[in-house]
Amino acid sequence: MSTPLWWLARAALALLLGAALSAQALEAPAGSAAALHARRLELQPSLRSSAFGEPLHLSSKEVADRIEGDVYAEMAHPFETVGAAFRSAQAVCEVMFLHLNVHACRPAEGSGLLVVAGPKRSGASGMTAQMRYTMRTEVDDPSHLRVVLSAPSGPLSTSDYRIVFEAVPIDAGRSFVHFGYSNNTTAAARLAMRIYLATAGREKIGFTVVGKEADGSPRYLRGERASLERNVMRYYFALLAHCSVRSGSPEERMQARLRTWFALTERHAAQLHEYELADYLQEKQRDLVRQAAGK
């Protein structure tokens, strides 16, 4: 006896629904360890052919009035070492302070930190601002660390700053990390950027290749997204410098990390060079003195 067509159709629909539900069940939740491992597998071609000379992938985007940048990288440091950089506000401040535009960072009341950021010369007039970040540890277990920092406001009425750090172990000696940085921008901030790019920053470029110059060389991204790319890479190198220096007194570690950060950024001088090592160290020493005095 032949099977009714309606029954076959109903059975096929059930199979399709079952397959869809199974796929949804297997899909890793966003922000989970499984999702970060899946992202690593997805990025393998980019990580293996990275122009950075290490397994690192950088992306950026601008949507409406928000700009976002993300670094994904395989680091040759154990998960515990990498995680230690983001398990306390004090450690996070040690990382952030290495950035040439961060002049002070100290833990704030509750779970947060106070950051003073502005032009690379701390004594220069301009867009220096105090930013209050809240720090939220969303996951902290032996297989995954995820920490989110957020600040409501920044220079030139920019707002909704968000830093996401997460890491998972690859093996006993390596970790896969994600460092994300984003904020809302404003007309005033875009105007300031245009003025900067027309004057002191006219040669500034990002890392994303957007075409070719007349001579066949790469044409790099410019503008606000390029600035964000430089910023997120400087923070990633701060994390790398922090993890690379683990011994010595606090003062010795700080000095070694400053030198390591500068050396890492100089590998990409076309995008990141601002001044010489002696100037950077001198400026950071002034920042340390002011910070110790509570200024």
Results as ranks from 00 to 15, higher is better:
140 D>E: 11
112 G>C: 07
211 G>M: 09
83 G>I: 08
221 L>K: 14
195 I>W: 11
263 A>R: 14
175 S>N: 11
81 T>L: 12
84 A>Y: 02
152 P>I: 02
192 A>D: 00
14 A>L: 14
26 L>P: 02
97 F>T: 10
39 R>D: 15
35 A>I: 15
141 D>Q: 15
37 H>F: 13
103 H>S: 08
291 Q>N: 08
64 A>R: 13
56 L>T: 10
229 E>T: 07
147 V>A: 00
155 P>W: 00
107 P>I: 12
274 E>V: 11
148 V>L: 04
140 D>T: 08
280 Y>G: 09
38 A>I: 13
142 P>M: 03
19 A>H: 10
83 G>D: 12
55 P>M: 04
59 S>F: 06
194 R>Y: 02
46 S>Y: 04
225 R>P: 14
242 H>P: 02
103 H>Y: 02
181 Y>D: 13
57 H>Q: 03
213 E>I: 05
7 W>L: 14
65 D>R: 05
68 E>F: 01
12 A>H: 07
95 V>E: 07
127 M>R: 06
42 E>M: 12
46 S>A: 08
24 Q>W: 10
202 R>S: 12
84 A>D: 10
91 A>L: 06
53 G>T: 05
125 S>K: 14
198 A>Y: 03
146 R>F: 01
109 E>M: 01
182 S>Y: 03
215 D>Y: 05
125 S>V: 13
43 L>P: 01
267 R>D: 08
281 L>Y: 06
225 R>K: 15
23 A>Y: 04
22 S>K: 14
261 W>T: 02
286 R>M: 12
295 K>D: 13
33 A>I: 03
76 A>C: 04
285 Q>E: 14
290 R>L: 14
108 A>N: 02
191 L>A: 10
43 L>R: 06
93 C>Y: 05
196 Y>H: 14
70 D>I: 01
173 G>M: 09
58 L>E: 02
57 H>W: 01
286 R>Q: 07
220 Y>F: 14
141 D>R: 10
87 R>L: 05
70 D>E: 06
236 Y>G: 13
214 A>V: 14
78 P>S: 03
188 A>W: 00
146 R>N: 04
108 A>Y: 00
80 E>I: 01
164 V>E: 15
102 V>W: 02
242 H>V: 04
285 Q>K: 15
120 K>V: 12
216 G>T: 09
208 T>M: 04
255 Q>N: 15
110 G>P: 08
48 R>D: 13
57 H>V: 10
26 L>M: 12
228 L>F: 03
231 N>G: 15
110 G>K: 00
241 A>Q: 15
38 A>E: 15
44 Q>V: 10
82 V>E: 07
205 I>G: 02
240 L>P: 06
267 R>S: 10
125 S>Q: 11
221 L>N: 14
91 A>D: 10
248 G>H: 04
205 I>H: 09
76 A>V: 06
9 A>G: 05
191 L>R: 11
75 M>V: 12
170 I>A: 08
58 L>S: 12
198 A>V: 01
